[in-house]
Design a protein around this nucleic acid. Structure first.
Lengths: 286, 286
DNA sequence: AACCAAGTTTCACATAATGGAACCAAGGGA
DNA sequence: TCCCTTGGTTCCATTATGTGAAACTTGGTT
């Protein structure tokens, strides 16, 4: 897999919810730290770079292991994420995301366009991919269900940000890292604001190799009737096989799919969910 | 000091490790409760059936929402699992399970046999499915991964239990519910012990419509060189299309796949992981 | 044997969790 | 209209819990 853009984007100030509230927050922070390593990790490694003293960290790890959120190999002394998480995740995926509703629609879309399709939701200014359908020849690229990506240089990210209400958009934009992944990456907030305007006007967003060279995509937001952003849908291709012009031609069918998903999501008990992703963590406001 | 004292609270639990330790444990218990509903749930619903007083539960929910583990819709007042879980889950799936390593092998096996393939691991006596390949339909990550099933009446469950070391097996067996799903379900612990012996002797397990009528499967364990149980692999079919005899013929290829997975898992830094699922929670054990 | 690093346990102390009760909406009868 | 109930949120004195420096144990090295 790629490098670690994750840290750049995820570690933005003003969003640090970790050690803010109580013991639980701290414990979850420890969990995140283990997750960040992406591999089984030993006590000492975890210790430096952690804001907790030895004994405290140790107790947290014990608790988390005992709770099944982490597993601990007595042999090597390594801590890894536990299976309880996988179980919880299944429930989370099934209940708090568009994925289960969208699944058949995405299948159909994927079959129709013959390219990779992504379903994403917004998570604190970042893009969370909740489902993906591969084209016949799978392209090696950065994305999978559960993965997070930057909001400012992906099609789905821009499509969602553009359709956020003023206040939420401002907050989300302020959380962007604006790291230059490729020469085409937009790194200037002012230019980004214009780009969002344009996207909102035309109703869909492009990613012109802004995140990965050779990868382009077109994305449309999934909007509730009230106009709140539920998620976004994108079709991706490589410059070798397709072009932005060709992708633009797919907008009608993608938009139709998005509309179908939105309708179904609303009709079948799905309140306003999405903006909550932001409200939930922002904490700042009223 | 041995391991006698601490387990006063932990030893009894077959599956419920909840409020045993501290604030963190309680908070995670709340998380589980929300997950158990499988749908957005309101405060009052959560309140009854919860061991916590109103104010306490309220504070927990607030904390979890603030941490992004839950989301809260101010409109309907409903709590749902948060996106942070999906993110953590992705990491968990990728690092603490065999799935990523096994994926290409499963693809190949699935293509070869043309039937549904399951990859499972053990989680406290229960079966946790971490990946699945449907003969026709392509990938679906969290949709199926994360499901749990009984250990005593599934092929993968029996295959894994049979190859556990004495102590762990005894503990795991004592955790089985032995509910009669079908006429063929084994509900007698003594008979089950014999069945496990037979499975261990022959190296693979069958599920002869013990869990669902009309569904049969054959499963083999994935064992490390040292003999510890890493997981299990199964091929499933319907009585309408296949038979146990036919499935038995697939054992060599399944076993070869299991061996490949085990080898790769071991060679690429993957210690003894699996037994830990049990050790992690049981605590006891010599 | 003496040393060192990684991991684990102790214990006096202070922070953070607790939960009964008060409080604040909204319906919704009468 | 007013009163009353139900669902949700906030207070605050009490006390359980978490905290972390330091001591200790284990296992490996020189």
């Amino acid at each position: 897999m790629g490098e670690e853009p994750r840290d750049m984007t995820a570690r933005r100030e003003g969003d640090r919810r970790e050690a803010s509230d109580g013991t639980v927050g701290k414990a979850l922070d420890v969990l995140d730290r283990v997750a960040a390593f992406g591999r089984p990790v030993r006590f000492a490694e975890l210790l430096d770079g952690s804001p907790f003293p030895k004994a405290t960290l140790y107790r947290f790890l014990q608790t988390l292991v005992h709770q099944g959120m982490l597993s601990h190999d007595p042999g090597t002394g390594a801590y890894a994420l536990g299976v309880r998480l996988v179980r919880l995740a299944h429930a989370a995926w099934a209940q708090s995301s568009l994925a289960p509703i969208a699944r058949p629609h995405i299948d159909r879309l994927s079959a129709a366009v013959g390219e990779t399709v992504h379903l994403a939701q917004l998570d604190g200014g970042q893009v969370l991919y909740v489902d993906k359908r591969n084209a016949r020849q799978p392209v090696a690229m950065f994305s999978q269900a559960g993965r997070v990506g930057p909001g400012y240089c992906t099609g789905v990210g821009k499509a969602m940000l553009a359709h956020l209400p003023e206040a939420a958009r401002a907050r989300a934009v302020s959380q962007q890292a604006f790291h230059r992944y490729t020469p085409a990456t937009i790194t200037d907030p002012a230019a980004f604001a214009l780009e969002l305007e344009a996207i909102r006007a035309r109703g869909h967003a492009f990613d012109a190799e802004e995140h990965e060279p050779g990868i382009v995509c077109v994305a449309v937001p999934i909007l509730s009737r009230a106009g709140t952003v539920l998620g976004a849908l994108s079709v991706t291709g490589t410059t070798a096989r397709t072009s932005l012009q060709a992708l633009a031609g797919l907008v009608p069918v993608i938009r139709a799919t998005a509309a179908d998903i939105a309708t179904e999501a609303e009709s079948w008990r799905f309140p306003e969910e999405q903006t909550q992703g932001l409200v939930a963590r922002g904490g700042a406001g009223a």
